[in-house]
Amino acid sequence: MTEGVERKSSRASAGGAKRKKKNQLPIAVVIFVVIAGIGVWLGFRGENLLLYWLLGLAFGFVLQRSRFCFTASMRDPYLTKSTSITRAVLIAFALTSIGFTAIKYGYFANGLAIPGQSFVATISIATAVGAIMFGIGMVIAGGCASGTLMRVGEGFWMQVISLFFFIVGSLWGAHDFGWWKRTFMLKGFEVFLPDYLGWLGGLGANLLIIAVIYVIAHKWEKKHSNELSH
């Protein structure tokens, strides 16, 4: 490594002379003030708007800080044989499903309508076609919906274009939605796991699937790193 260090220092001195790092913290402070200002304005318009604004800020901050990427979780196991993001996504699935199930069960146990059931979506050919399209799109565009928004915030012009065409594509999809509904979705079905397995069974099955995929992901990465290292 001595050699590498030497090279590094010689290059760094050459590069350091022509470039001077600016400190962006003062700009961050300005942005914080603007964000807070928008928050106050939204708060006067409606509490709900402020809540959503805060949630979005939290999601954006966390996604950027941890470089979390749902696209990579699906792409890297195939492309680079790395599953560290995949496994992190699985952990998120597990934790969130425990929390969601608790909230849903709380409503159910009190005899209230279970919230958020519109996210138990209809499964049909449209799901398969749409998911494949989405998978192709996110890999070539270098980011899914949340990832694209996050990268727009990081200053990627390419993602501004993909965001614009994401909107165009969404409108196109909405335009054709009636056809997909008549042709496929009406023949589809919904499965809310607790309807079939009970609350505990449903959550247990979900966690079991997550655990099995986690083990497969781990072994997959190990297998490939062994192949490369000898």
Partner: peptide
């Protein structure tokens, strides 16, 4: 990529967040 994601997300009821993450977490 943008067009594919937009169209795909509409007919599959969402993206990596709504259809995938929130779907799985909703059991």
């Amino acid at each position: 990529g943008g067009l594919l994601m937009g169209y795909g997300a509409r007919i599959a009821f969402g993206c990596n967040i709504g259809a995938l993450y929130s779907g799985i977490a909703s059991l």
